[in-house]
Amino acid sequence: MTEPKTHTLAVPGAVLHYDVRGNDTSTLPVLLLIGSPMGAAGFGTLAGHFDDRTVVTYDPRGAERSKRTDNATESTPDEHADDLHRLISALDAGPVDIFASSGGAVNALALVARHPEQVRTLVAHEPPVVQELPDREAALAAAADIHRTYQRSGFGPAMAKFIALVSHEGPIPAGFADQPGPDPAAFGLPTEDDGSRDDPLVGQNMISCTHYGHDFDALREASTRVVIGVGVESAHVMTGRAAVAVAERLGTTPATFPGGHGGFLGGEYGETGEPDAFAATLRKVLSE
């Protein structure tokens, strides 16, 4: 595998930045590693475990290097799916394999519903498809409250509420959104509002991603092999529970991955999961 080479792709409303780690001798499909709002920087460790094929990572629109050009304040899964469609077309390497994490999994499922011919296998790891949870009303209310908190008070208070939501085990209780948020300082988060309102997680994904409704009929009929992944350590929190619900809607059994929601991380963003074991599981799932 070569060192990553950065490319840009102009799409409606944004300029995408993506990195290609090439392997000219591989006969395997290109492997696309994606998140949202996590960008390419989150997949360096995982990419290193797949030097037997070409690996592509990218920054979703509105995140890190991929700046929006339309001044929009929200990016939807449908927009991200169209971006992925255009990116895969630009690669011109035939159907790809995709490992997609979190919001990236939501976007990749939206892509497969529209363009299954572009994806051989999709491994969607813990898509936060909150709409499929039995406690959806409380969970969606909590997500909306995080967004409102961000608009009102800034990043620290909103992110503290986000951490409380995604670490809660079991169904989200009614009235969860009405509870006082944790102290941001307890998580090392800023307590002062710097005035910015462009964070792609608490400013955008908390609404557009969690509230998205998938076309499960199209997904079940797709030629793409779709595997839903669940972290062994996160099976009982919102993202793991949502992933199990998505697998049930698809009529499949989820694949269990080592670690939690970020089990593939090897120090990126200050978080370390179980990247070696995670990569081995992903390789096995892809080869099946």
Rank of each mutant, 00 (worst) to 15 (best):
T2S: 15
E3L: 13
P12K: 02
G22V: 11
D24I: 08
S26T: 08
L28Q: 04
L28P: 00
P29H: 00
P37F: 00
G42F: 08
D51C: 05
D51G: 10
R53T: 02
V55F: 01
A63K: 03
A63W: 03
K67M: 13
A72M: 10
T76I: 06
D78I: 15
D83M: 02
L91F: 04
A93G: 06
I98L: 10
S102M: 08
G104V: 02
A105R: 03
A108W: 04
A110V: 13
A113M: 07
H115K: 14
E117S: 14
R120E: 12
T121I: 11
V123H: 06
V123T: 05
P128V: 07
L133H: 03
P134G: 08
R136F: 10
A141T: 09
Y150K: 01
G154T: 00
P157F: 00
M159T: 06
L165F: 11
S167Y: 12
P171N: 08
A177Y: 06
D183Y: 00
P184Q: 07
A185R: 10
A186F: 08
F187P: 05
L189G: 05
S196M: 14
M206T: 11
M206W: 08
I207R: 15
C209K: 08
C209T: 15
C209Y: 13
G213I: 15
H214G: 02
H214D: 07
E221W: 08
V226R: 01
I228V: 15
S234P: 03
A235I: 11
H236P: 06
G240E: 06
V244E: 14
V246C: 09
V246N: 02
E248H: 12
A255N: 07
T256P: 10
P258T: 10
G260H: 04
H261G: 04
G262M: 15
F264L: 11
G273A: 05
D276H: 12
D276P: 11
L282Y: 07
